[in-house]
Structure formats: structure tokens, C-alpha cells
Amino acid sequence: MGIQDIIEGKKQWRAHLARVKALPPDYQIVYKEIQKYLFKIGPIGLLDGPLLPGIVDFFEEGVATGRGVLELIGPDVAGFCDDLIKDSPTYAEIYQKSISGKPGTAEK
């Protein structure tokens, strides 16, 4: 990761956050909670992949049809997130795999 990538990444991230800020309050709340959850779970490609911008695309469409955010994704927001990342391995899983064969290291 060179300096240029970091700057470029920051610009993109700011533009992404600006789109989030333009959403209605209920959408913003749910987006932020989703993002926090995903940061903890760590599906691959979270920070440089299409997952988060995709959610904003989807939310913008929901706003355009005049629906509230829970009408769009249902009350089980965590269930929605888990469906989203169902086939993406997480960084924790990759990490665990990289140390497997040395049992016990993760249990320290």
C-alpha cells in the first residue's frame, strides 16, 4: 500500500461517507450500525470491495420508493448482514486457517 493508495482510498471513503450522510436519518442509523458490525466480523474485501457502497446503492433505491429502512430490510438487521456475507470468508477465518496445525495457539 503506497502513499498514493492511502490518499486515494481516503478520498473514496470520504465520498462514500458523504453519500451515507445524504440518506434520511433512519437509513443513516441502520447503515452505521451495520458498518460497525461488519468491522467486527471482518468479511474479506470489506474495506476495498463493493459491499459497503453496494448497501448505500440499495438504500438509495429504498429511499426513492418512499419506504422506511426496516420496511426495506426487515427488523432482523443482523440477519440481513449475515446473509450479505454468507459466502465471504472472514479475516478471522483466514487467520485461524493460517495457524491451524498448531493447535492451541488461538486459545491462549
Binding site: 441502520v30 450500525e33 458490525y37 443482523a78 478471522a92 477465518e93
Partner: peptide
């Protein structure tokens, strides 16, 4: 975070936390 001991319990807790916060 590293997927070690208790990761599953934590994930359940994070799920609950997410829905509760929302």
C-alpha cells in the same frame, strides 16, 4: 476478532447488540 476462543459467543452478542441498537 481473531476468531479464537469465544468468537461464536461474541458474534451472537454483536448480533443482539446490532438489533438492539437499531
Amino acid at each position: 476478532l481473531a476468531g479464537g476462543r469465544g468468537a461464536r459467543t461474541y458474534r451472537d452478542r454483536w448480533r443482539d447488540q446490532l438489533n438492539r441498537n437499531v
